[in-house]
Each structure stands twice: as C-alpha cells, then as structure tokens.
C-alpha cells in the first residue's frame, strides 16, 4: 500500500547554521497514529513544519498522497491539518467565525452544518459566539483542533497537543484522537510525554539531534519494556557466578556484592523461585531484594544519550 506520507532524505539547515534535520527517511501509512518522541530541539517541529509548508527544506523530498509538498503544494496542503504547539489565535475573532475562516483558507465551500457538528464534538457548542481571548487555555486548544479539522483533512499533525494541559483535558484529547482514527484520519503527533505515545500511538518514532533514531511498532517497544530486573544484594560478595546458576541470565555487579537477574514478565514463569532456591543451594546468602523495570523512557534515554 502506498504510504500517505513519504519522507526521503529530508534535511534542514537553518540560516544560523543549525542542522535541524539530518537525512530523515520515514513512511507513514494511511490511518495510523504515529508519535514522534524527542527532547526539545530534536527536530520534531521542524519536520512537521516542512511537511506543512512553514519551513523550506534544504534537501530531500516529501510526498503526501503521492503529491510533492513543493511542486503540488495545493494538493498536499488540502489534505493536511495542523495544530501548532503555540496557542496562536486571533484574540478578537469569534469561535465559529474563526473556524469558518480556516475552512475558507483551505479552499472549501462554507458548510455550517459540518462545522457545528465539529465544534459540538469538541465540546465547543456553547462557545460559538465567544471571542477567543475569553476562552481558557484548554478551550483555545480545542479551537485550534477545530480549525485544523475544518477542511476535513486526511492527515492531522498535532504538535505537542498536550503540552501544559491538565490531566483531564489530556485524556479528552486522547479520546478525540481515537475518534479521528476511527474516521480514518492519519495522525502524527509530537510529544515528549512517553505515556502519551504509549496510550494512543500505533508506532513510535524517536528523534534526537535531527536524526530519526528509531521507528517501531509500539507493541515491539512494549516487549522491550516487558524486561524486568531482579537485584539481589548478597551478604558476602561473590567472586563469580556459581556453575550451578549458569542456566539463568545473571550478571554480577558492584564488585560481586549484587547479582542482577533479567527476566521476561510476559513469559509463563519468571523463574525467581527456582533461582532463589538454587542460590541458597549454592551457598549464597541474600541481604536484600529489589526489582526494577526499564520503561520506554529508559529506552528513549539510552537511544538519545547512548553514552
């Protein structure tokens, strides 16, 4: 199946010399939700801005539904909606008017029934004639989403949709994203909240220093998450792992005072009971026990800071 967005060797160097994107390649499939994770300044917004036409690329190409974003910009932009990171709104415009304006900008004929339904879905029905400046931060963000969806795009970019948003609104936002997915909209969101990527994305891409370090199915990443470690502190340090324990994935640390056992919580048995028994038989006495689980955050941090 032809990807809805195809990014090839995309790079961007700003006039300041900052190399914001380095040879990025990425295919995004129709109907999927892709989360782009990365620290501030990683290049997430630059990537989105190039696809939407806000930033000119230095090299490479991007197609949306088979159309080039530069030579066929009218076709690509018609298909795209963008919710920017900043709450950029015309303070004196009214909610319904600003959404009508957005629809017109994208070349669509007025359709008040569609817009009213859209605003109702975003719980903005009672704010149609309110000035934007009178709305709360969360409401303003909903308006930005309504503006981005006003022209019925097939692809929606959400740039840090829940940055600085309270928990309740964040959950609401996830519901909105799910509804859009059901309607067949492809969604690309940037975030630095790992739980957000876990909660709603199908695939996760990690960007750092302008490079796309990894793109993987979320479930694959979760499997890596499934690894857990048992830390066994010994009363007396051991010189080496006893032969009888060779069957377990063990490692010695802290000059032999700790044994680390890595196991898979998704498998049927963890093997902890047997291990502890075998250790007692091998004459190792325990002082303390501790378990730890690597999170997507750890994977992310390791990718971003490999040292």
């Amino acid at each position: 199946m032809q990807p809805i967005i195809s990014i090839k060797n995309l790079s961007k160097t700003y006039d300041t010399g900052h190399h914001a994107l380095k040879d990025v390649n990425l295919d995004i499939q129709k109907g999927e939700i892709l989360a782009l994770l990365g620290p501030n300044g990683a290049g997430k917004t630059t990537l989105i801005s190039i696809i939407c036409g806000l930033v000119a690329p230095t090299g490479g190409s991007v197609t949306v539904d088979g159309y080039d974003i530069i030579s066929d910009y009218r076709e690509t932009r018609k298909r795209i909606g963008l919710v920017p990171q900043e709450l950029a709104i015309a303070a004196f415009d009214k909610v319904f008017e600003t959404v009508q304006y957005s629809r017109g900008l994208f070349g669509k004929k007025p359709d008040n029934a569609y817009l009213e339904q859209l605003l109702s879905d975003l719980s903005l029905s009672d704010k149609l004639t309110s000035e934007l400046r009178a709305l709360s931060g969360g409401m303003k963000r909903r308006v930005l989403i309504a503006k981005a969806l006003s022209h019925e795009p097939r692809v929606l970019f959400l740039d840090e949709p829940t940055a600085g948003v309270d928990v309740e609104l964040r959950k609401d936002m996830w519901k909105i994203v799910n509804r859009l997915r059901e309607a067949g909209v492809t969604i690309i969101l940037t975030t630095h909240y790992i739980e957000e990527a876990e909660a709603i994305a199908d695939r996760v891409g990690v960007i750092s220093g302008g490079e796309l370090l990894l793109v993987d199915d979320k479930n694959n990443l979760m499997q890596k998450l499934g690894k857990k470690q048992l830390l066994i502190e010994l009363k007396e340090p051991a010189q080496a792992i006893p032969e009888s324990l060779a069957g377990y994935a063990l490692a010695l640390s802290k000059k032999g005072s700790e044994i680390i056992y890595t196991y898979d919580i998704t498998s049927d048995g963890t093997g902890i009971t047997a291990l502890l028994q075998a250790m007692a038989e091998a004459g190792l006495t325990m002082k303390d026990l501790k378990t730890s689980q690597s999170s997507l955050e750890d994977i992310f941090v390791n990718l971003v800071n490999p040292q």
Partner: peptide, 17 residues
C-alpha cells in the same frame, strides 16, 4: 503584521494559497 505578531500566520502559510 498582526497575524505574524500573534502567530496565526502559520495557518495562512500552511493553507493551499
């Protein structure tokens, strides 16, 4: 100037215009 100042110019720049 005002859309540039308020940031809303993003919408015009990302529209098929």
């Amino acid at each position: 100037f005002f859309p540039k100042f308020s940031g809303t110019v993003y919408e015009i720049m990302s529209a098929p215009i």
